Simulated assay, not measured.
Amino acid sequence: MRVVIAGAGAVGRSVASELLENGHEVLLVDRDPKAIKAEAVPDASWLLADACELSSLEEAQLNRCQVVIAASGDDKVNLVVSLLAKTEFGVPRVVARVNHPKNEWMFNESWGVDVAVSTPRIMAALVEEAVAVGDLVRLFTFQQGDANLVELTLPEDSPSIGKRVQDVSWPADVSLVTIVREGRVLVPTGETPLEGHDELLFVSIPEREHELQELLCPHDQAKTQPASR
């Protein structure tokens, strides 16, 4: 997969290193010569250019990209890059960094953003995820498709304990994608049994989250909304 990252600061370089380790092709773009640190990520390609200019994105060959990541420290830059990537080059997946929570409402499909990554929101969700057993925690929202990645740690008294995945009557528009069990990541099959303290990760539309909570923890009648918003 070819990925272009606009913004070669600490965040952009860290993301690039992770993607390269997973075998992807990465180009880092930044207009600040001081940010061009090829020795920091030697396996990446580098381009000294302003990612807000159409000519720079043409030089970066965004038409060959599967993913663009707008990772600069400026929300205005990230929005412009996202919009150009989606509207001018038709990039299938655009991920944008939100630096200031007050701007988060703008990071949506209208600006070409498929996934908005807000550090304060993720940190709050991870804190809640760490302490909440039996609470449905919203980790983040996929802007395109109106779906959320949510997590729930099964309490010992859940009625789903001991059932196989295929025997649970999951709500419509809900998909169990991963089970984290004793530090191991499991890809669930229909035969996989559910155990106490399993961390279940789902993709769900917002309207089904209450049903999912009630299915797995019906004794918590007061919990009608996910723990994180």
Rank of each mutant, 00 (worst) to 15 (best):
I5W: 05
A8N: 04
A10W: 00
V11S: 02
R13N: 05
E21Y: 06
E21C: 03
V26P: 05
V29K: 06
D32L: 07
P33K: 04
K34V: 12
K37M: 13
A38V: 13
A38L: 06
P42T: 09
A44W: 05
L47W: 02
C52G: 03
C52Y: 03
E53M: 14
Q61M: 05
Q61S: 11
R64K: 13
Q66M: 01
V67M: 09
V68G: 04
V68T: 01
V77W: 01
V81I: 15
V81F: 05
V81A: 04
V91G: 08
R93M: 13
V95D: 05
V98Y: 12
V98L: 12
H100V: 13
K102I: 12
V115Q: 03
A116K: 05
T119N: 06
T119A: 15
R121D: 07
I122Y: 09
A132F: 12
F140V: 01
D146H: 09
N148P: 02
V150E: 00
L152I: 15
S160T: 14
R164M: 10
V168R: 09
V168A: 07
A172M: 02
I179C: 12
E182P: 11
V185G: 04
G196V: 03
G196Q: 08
L201Y: 15
S204K: 05
P206C: 05
E207K: 15
R208N: 10
L216I: 15
Q221D: 05
